[in-house]
Design a protein around this nucleic acid. Structure first.
Lengths: 448, 448
DNA sequence: CTGAAAGCGCTAACAC
DNA sequence: GTGTTAGCGCTTTCAG
């Protein structure tokens, strides 16, 4: 009923081993036989059994993504990016919604982690300890959070607020309110730091911290009243959802935006342009966060995988690799080579001969990242203090085209390799209709 | 390194077979041994190898969901519902984004279908033929589309527009514009049908069809101008995104909503309340669409599965089942029993003794569906003309609490069982600020 | 109720 | 280059 590799082998007049090789490692088979086997396989409609393959190779060809809330446009966009990238690389992706529950996250990762080659955790709210624990079981890449030796892709939080505040300052605003996100939000902490730096640098600018709020529309609505009462002429919100809430509340109270109060968001979700006035906000390359995360995962995390046979081999290869051989890519290639190829029809047949160089920036619109970002362990970079806390990042005063960091995505899986530099993506302020010049006379609640 | 079932067996002093049973079919093992094995397994941190299990059982414990666009709030919400439900049943779910490309859909389903127990296709744009083809390979459940014998969950499209038009009519509107969705949208076709019925029933109501538009914000913006030119005092949009676009365009042109024009959307996505005026719209139980789809999948689609050994057994069981024995649930239970239980730690240990009754409405807020919706093949229902085209659905004139259909979710997998009735979910108009009484004098472009 | 044995479909040594 | 031989870890007959 279901056609098996044996069937193909028999029909092609070769041994199962040869059939297997012809499909999975074509370069090991004589051209004539190879093509014949491939043809027969096609004719018979052969579909390799993934479970059987996984059982022996230890690789699944799957990834997983865990987000706090799929309905949040921010995460939806990241998910889309992850999807797209994974698909072109031949990976399928499990998506899990943690329902904003920090306790659910580790559970989800543990469950899914058992059946994937790696996991992307987007804005995880779980503790550092949980992250450490999980990282032992499955290759992890963090998005929008940083943690010790784990690979991660983040945005330049500090630079975003810098741009926003600079913009507001140029419009004459001197009293700016900040409506923060959740107290335990990693990115919010970075933005606060950035805020402190900018306001230091700018004369006569005063930032009023209105405190932490839920990072959703309702949070913004609540914050709206505080904004009105603060006497600020401009407000910067933790994210667009919050900004939208503020906007809504302000307008409901009869305050005009931007005539009375200017509002700036963060993230640039689609809804930012659905409202009027359209929201001035900090554009974050949402989809790219996802894409980079996948690249990172495929680049290094996949190298080690608890997979019985494969595991031992990889370990041996890595050892040999470290012992001198500057870079015999062929070796690691045949080991780390995961699924690839856009066509799902015969992924195996399409398996490239070229070594595994998953991301060389080909698809990126700006050439920020080094083209050899995927190659790891080239001596020099080893042993640095990459495991530091990551406080060294934001020289927030500097500006100009901040490069999205290169760094060697090494393997933090306990193979003794150094911790990777996080991939940091640039953000950019996009000015729309919700910000304008400071009102000539101060606006306050008393105005109405 | 990794603890295997053999290890557990050895440590517990039993054979691998017994260990396996103790964990996967506890009822087959003597209480004493059973508990001992379970304890040992826990202590050793035993984690069953899913690949090995899948290889022999043919079941994966995974589902997949394919949507046209993850960033569309409609699909995000459905995805969330699918997620949640699948998780409580112990299933992990692959999510794929078809990027609004009908050609990509079958490819994704084919790829993922090979490694899941069933697939949920949300608003698939692919052809009927593609659906037929895929349905042969993997159990399918459709959301927001109907097709022959495939199980599906849809909303009462016709009733939604009926409510909307009735509302508008009550406000005095007599000239109502309809801004449709994509020409090949199944749901849009249903809404048009409903529209025709209602306007027949209502005196003096004239519906102006403004044609098909892309179901996104930009589509609505484009439609906005047509609305203004149509002379209609109210407009009903294919969905909220389009309604939002219309709203935006109308306001940009100086028309006031609802004073000059009333706007009604469909779906009630979160953004509907982010704008001002808040959108009057037809609330669709988005998350529930997803939940029901999963229930349907688990209820019947899982019964048959090409899985070597399991397949034959299931087939035999089904045959025996049909031959009289009204309901020997024990049999099918041990066969169809998929993963379940909320705890991921020891899903197996939690395997219920009770027969497989995945959804009995326990989690539903309204008891619309029958509690025995999961039980299939009880003679009577067999052989009906369930395979009809689905044109029989909308007696659009009727109203009142339309029940969300019960029907026996039979297996359309060619086992000779009848086609299932689609699960139809009720929708409800929610009146917000974007609709109001008809203007005393007609509004047209000339007004400004 | 329990154990021994036989694979699920595939890949990876190891010889030839 | 190719075939032969072993299993990967688990479930499931089939005897006892």
């Amino acid at each position: 009923m279901v056609v098996t590799l044996r069937d193909v082998a028999r029909a092609a007049g070769v041994s199962p081993a040869t059939a297997s090789r012809a499909l999975s490692s074509p370069e090991l088979v004589a051209p004539a036989r190879r093509e014949q086997v491939q043809r027969v396989a096609r004719e018979l409609g052969y579909r390799p059994n993934r479970a059987a393959r996984e059982l022996i190779t230890g690789r699944t060809g799957n990834l997983c993504l865990v987000v706090p809330d799929l309905e949040n446009p921010f995460f939806a966009a990241v998910a889309k990016g992850v999807q797209a990238r994974a698909r072109t690389l031949g990976y399928a992706v499990f998506v899990a919604d943690a329902e904003e529950d920090p306790r659910l996250e580790p559970e989800l990762v543990a469950h899914l982690g058992a059946q994937v080659d790696g996991a992307v955790l987007c804005s995880p709210r779980m503790s550092d300890e949980d992250l450490d624990r999980l990282a032992e079981d499955v290759p992890l890449v963090l998005v929008n959070r940083r943690h010790r030796a784990l690979a991660s892709v983040v945005i330049d939080n500090a630079d975003g607020v810098r741009q926003a505040v600079t913009h507001l300052h140029a419009l004459g605003h001197t009293r700016i309110a900040y409506v923060g996100g959740p107290a335990d939000s990693w990115s919010d902490a970075r933005r606060r730091e950035g805020l402190a730096h900018v306001s230091h640098g700018l004369r006569r600018v005063e930032v009023v911290d209105l405190g932490p709020f839920a990072p959703v529309f309702a949070g913004g609505v609540a914050a709206g009243d505080l904004v009105a009462a603060s006497g600020a002429t401009a407000v910067l919100a933790h994210n667009d959802l919050v900004a939208l809430g503020i906007l809504s509340r302000l307008q409901a109270r009869g305050l005009r935006v931007p005539q009375d109060v200017s509002v700036v968001g963060y993230d640039d979700i689609p809804a930012a342009t659905l409202v009027s006035p359209a929201l001035t906000t900090v554009t974050v390359p949402l989809a790219r966060l996802g894409r980079e995360a996948v690249d990172l995962l495929v680049a290094h995390a996949m190298s080690t995988r608890r997979g019985s046979a494969a595991e031992r081999v990889v370990a041996a290869a890595l050892a040999a690799h470290r012992d001198g051989a500057g870079g015999a890519p062929g070796v690691s290639a045949s080991i780390t080579g995961g699924p690839r190829g856009a066509s799902y029809v015969d992924v195996d047949a399409a398996r490239a001969v070229e070594p595994h160089t998953p991301h060389d920036g080909t698809h990126e619109t700006d050439g920020a990242r080094g083209t050899d970002g995927a190659r790891r362990a080239d001596g020099k970079a080893v042993g640095a203090d990459g495991g530091a806390d990551g406080r060294a990042d934001a020289p927030a005063g500097a500006h100009g085209p901040r490069v999205g960091v290169v760094g060697a995505p090494a393997s933090p899986d306990g193979t003794g390799e150094p911790a990777p530099q996080p991939v940091r993506l640039r953000v950019e302020l996009v000015v729309r209709a919700s910000t304008g010049p400071v009102p000539t006379r101060p606006t306050s609640e008393a105005d109405r």
